[in-house]
Design a protein around this nucleic acid. Structure first.
Length: 344
RNA sequence: CCGCUCUUAGCUCAGCCUGGUAGAGCAGCCGACUGUAGAUCGGCUUGUCCCCCGUUCGAAUCGGGGAGAGCGGACCA
């Protein structure tokens, strides 16, 4: 596979590459590596899927992929996960991520999974962390992590250490590229700034777009209807998509279109199948789309009504997440032990 | 170690002084209007008032004890 094709695979459906020149150079190197970290906190949802789906692209581009299950981070961020549940939630995340990678058409065995506690407690890491702590101002760390860690009136030190640890993780895992949602930008920009000052390589960064919430605006963990959960059955998915904010002819904050663009079409493309919308004759009959761009164009023109779009989208999403839901149904103890209060 | 403040609906808070078993905004749910959703209009739901004990006919409210959270002071050989 040539460099141009690899670059296309790596960068498609991303929000930003820092920097493209560095990526061009990296892809000339023998064994490029990329990593993404997930703090095992709340239940995984469709947003996780959009970043994970791309791991299939990286593998196809022949890049080493490491997934960090950032267990310590899950606790450091305002104790989102109680210390005693870190193991159970890590196991749940790892299983979920494997299922998503598989659903995206790749082999989960090709991915290396690492736990934060596997290396973040080792002396070299800890010593390096202290040196970063000594050298970074509170306001700098605060600013870097403001989009990631929970903001509150009584912020904990853990949030600041979190930020520096995530920066250091890139070097500790020896990753050429730090990959994550665009919300992670602040932290990895800090990494690019401070790692070279401490003798480490300056990492490239690759950011995935974030999906809008289904009720418009940002996706919210607390708003049930603002996102599709990976455990939602087809009926629930249908109801959520049906209730989504979706103004005719508008792209802004339109979660339905974003789901199609970043999730449904890429996966259908992988399977070589088109997107079929069943529509009453009265409104023009069924339509078939091979590419998202054509659908978006029709939607903008008003040729495609939101209600018709929603029905087909709900079915497609439900079908895509079905294997993941089934995995959790097969192993109910994964969720039960990760969230004992919710599943008892 | 000492002192002060806070704890009421999913969230932010009012009510407490001057006891009569609780309210607002937001959120949520349901209808109307749109071939979706939103916006708009109409309607509706929700509470161990942090816990225990006491005073009282009656305690979210007063008194005592406790828990959790926050802030400040002191100490700095």
């Amino acid at each position: 596979m040539n460099t141009a094709e690899r670059k296309r695979l790596v960068t498609r459906h991303t929000e930003e590459v820092v920097t493209e020149e560095e990526l061009d150079d990296l892809l000339e190197e023998p064994d490029p590596s990329i990593y993404i970290g997930y703090a095992p906190t709340g239940e995984m949802h469709i947003g996780h899927f959009t970043t994970i789906r791309k791991l299939a692209d990286f593998l196809e581009a022949d890049i080493d992929v490491t997934v960090l299950i950032a267990d310590l981070h899950a606790h450091l961020d305002d104790e989102k996960s109680p210390f005693d549940l870190l193991e159970a939630r890590s196991a749940y995340y790892e299983a979920g991520i494997e299922a998503m990678v598989e659903a995206a058409g790749a082999n989960p065995d090709d991915i290396e999974f690492v736990r934060g506690t596997d290396f973040e407690l080792e002396e070299p890491y800890t010593l390096e962390l202290y040196r970063l702590l000594a050298d970074t101002t509170i306001s700098r760390a605060q600013r870097a992590g403001s989009e990631v860690v929970r903001q509150s009136d009584n912020p904990k030190l853990g949030a600041l250490v979190y930020t520096l640890m995530q920066s250091l993780d890139v070097a500790a895992l020896d990753a050429d590229i730090a990959y994550g949602g665009i919300d992670q930008r602040g932290i990895y920009m800090l990494a690019r700034e401070i790692l070279p000052e401490h003798g480490h390589d300056k990492p490239l960064c690759l950011f995935a777009p974030l999906l809008s919430g289904l009720s418009g605006g940002k996706m919210s963990a607390s708003e049930v209807g603002s996102k599709v959960n990976l455990t939602d059955d087809p009926e629930t998915v249908g109801e959520k998509i049906d209730g989504a904010y979706c103004p005719q002819g508008e792209l802004e904050e339109n979660g339905v279109l974003e789901y199609l663009d970043h999730l449904v079409f890429p996966i259908l493309e992988e399977e070589g199948e088109p997107f079929v919308i069943e529509r009453p004759e009265q409104y023009g009959g069924n339509v078939v789309y091979e590419e998202y761009g054509d659908l978006e164009a029709d939607f903008l023109e008003g040729e495609l009504h939101p209600q018709d779009l929603k029905g087909a989208t709900g079915e497609a999403i439900a079908e895509i997440i079905a294997p993941i839901r089934e995995r959790f149904e097969t192993e109910p103890e994964l969720l039960a032990s990760a969230y004992p209060d919710r599943y008892d």
